[in-house]
Each structure stands twice: as structure tokens, then as C-alpha cells.
């Protein structure tokens, strides 16, 4: 039986690979046959070679470090602010209703619109990127953790009240553990957003990290290097997602994934 399912998964993986492999091979053949000379396209083999070279001279590793540092620092700051506000709004209906208009007024501002403000206030570099990433991450965490706190079993809150736990302990021992699975979902979504925003800021203006690297390759008309960066950015995005999904499953079991649609 288990042998059968293993065979089935193998079959599925094989089927999943048919399309991308076929496309890559076809493209490689086409590029070789036409001796492709282009500013925007390059044969897959050339892209792989460019990627290997970028690894060899550490340039892509340094860029990766810069991007991930900004993304994760921004994510951490945004998560802490979002979580604190989310828990406060989730616990106090009064506070939540009073802040409603303010939140609804700031939230729809596209994070990237803050770029010029951050630019004149902080200049180029990590700091402005971190601020923008943090701003982008606050909202999903705030909204999902607020919902998570609100959906805590009321019995649990009664227990904590009956135990006469002080407020800080109540948050630390009851509320956060109870809401943690859903908060982690919010964190996972925000991690994806953090990476996207960091790369976007770098592409738009900030001269560091992977985004700047890919822009530089484009301006140097190095299509192979540009596509190598694109592939690498994709791999990082995919890997980050996988790591967080696996972590979520390990930590909270499969059930937690069902909260995704929220």
C-alpha cells in the first residue's frame, strides 16, 4: 500500500516536471540554433554558467545577505509592532473601535509609496528598506493576530481570570500560546511580503541587495546574469516558503494550515 503511494507521488512529481523541463530544453535548442544574441533572453545553459560565476565571486551571496538582512529585520520589527497592536486590539474592543478609522486610513497606503519619504528621511541603505518592509508587515500581522486573539476559546479566558493571572502573564501564558498557530500563519504570509517588498525597494531605488544586482545586470546588458538573478530570487522565495510551511506543520500540525484562507 505505502509502496503504491510512493510510486504515485513519484509519478506526480514526474508529471509536474514534464512542462518546465520541456520548456527549458526547447528554449535551449532554439537559442543554440539561432545563435541567440539578445539583451533580454539567454540560453538556459548560459544562465546557469552566469549563476555559477556569480557564486564564485561571492557577488550574489553578498547581495543575498543584504536583501535577507533587510527583509528579516523589517519583518521582525513589523511583526513585533503588528503583534502588540493586534493583541491589544483583540483584547480591548474599546481600543479596537476607537482606532478603527486611524487604522483604515493608514493601512491602504501602498508600502512602496513610503519609499520617497524614507529616502529623504534616511537616505539610501538598509535603514530605509527596513522601515518600508516593517510598514508592509505590520498590517497582515495586526489583522490576523487580532482575529486570532478574538477567536480564543472564551472558556480559556475565564480560566485565566479565575486564576487571577496578572495582565502580562495572561498575555504570555494564555493568549499568545492559544493564538500562536494562527499568528504563525500571519508570520508566514508576512515573510513572503517582506522578501517581495525588500526586492522591490532595491529594484526601484536602493542600491543594495539582489534587486540592485538584477538591475545592474540589466543595465550592463548582461541578459544571462539578469536571468540568473531572477532564477536565484525565485529559488529564495520558494525556499523561504517551503521552510516556513514545513516549520508550521512541525510546530502546529496539519490543522494549522487550514487557517490559511482566513
Amino acid at each position: 500500500m505505502s509502496d503504491n503511494t510512493a510510486k504515485n507521488t513519484a509519478k506526480h512529481t514526474a508529471k509536474a516536471l514534464v512542462l518546465p523541463v520541456a520548456l527549458l530544453v526547447a528554449f535551449e535548442v532554439w537559442a543554440r540554433a539561432t545563435h541567440l544574441q539578445s539583451d533580454s533572453l539567454a540560453a538556459p545553459s548560459d544562465v546557469v554558467r552566469a549563476l555559477a560565476e556569480a557564486f564564485a565571486d561571492f557577488s550574489i551571496l553578498i547581495a543575498t545577505r543584504d536583501t535577507l538582512f533587510s527583509a528579516f529585520t523589517g519583518l521582525a520589527i513589523g511583526s513585533i509592532i503588528g503583534l502588540a497592536l493586534g493583541i491589544a486590539f483583540g483584547l480591548s474592543n474599546t481600543l479596537n473601535r476607537l482606532m478603527e478609522v486611524t487604522v483604515e486610513a493608514i493601512r491602504p497606503i501602498p508600502s512602496i509609496a513610503l519609499l520617497p519619504i524614507a529616502l529623504i528621511a534616511l537616505g539610501f541603505g538598509y535603514r530605509m528598506e527596513i522601515v518600508i518592509v516593517a510598514f508592509a508587515c505590520v498590517w497582515p500581522i495586526l489583522i490576523l493576530s487580532r482575529a486570532a486573539v478574538r477567536s480564543i476559546e472564551p472558556r480559556l479566558m475565564e480560566v485565566s481570570r479565575a486564576l487571577r493571572l496578572p495582565a502580562a502573564q495572561r498575555v504570555w501564558k494564555i493568549i499568545i500560546p492559544a493564538a500562536l498557530p494562527r499568528i504563525f500563519v500571519a508570520f508566514r504570509l508576512s515573510a513572503g511580503i517582506a522578501l517581495i517588498v525588500a526586492v522591490t525597494v532595491e529594484i526601484a531605488i536602493n542600491p543594495i541587495g539582489l534587486g540592485a544586482g538584477i538591475m545592474l545586470a540589466q543595465q550592463a546588458l548582461r541578459a544571462d546574469l539578469m536571468l540568473a538573478y531572477l532564477v536565484w530570487i525565485g529559488v529564495i522565495g520558494y525556499a523561504l516558503n517551503i521552510v516556513l510551511v514545513v516549520a508550521q506543520r512541525r510546530l502546529f500540525g496539519r490543522a494549522a494550515l487550514s487557517g490559511d484562507s482566513a
Binding site: 533580454s40 538591475m215 522565495g237
Partner: peptide, 16 residues
Amino acid sequence: FLRPLPVSAIIPVAIA
């Protein structure tokens, strides 16, 4: 597989 790709990374390719 493509879903988590930061879509803005396609901008340089589009510019090229």
C-alpha cells in the same frame, strides 16, 4: 513554484 517569486523581479527583464 512560481507563486512565491517576488513579481517585481520581472521588472528588469521587462525593461530589457
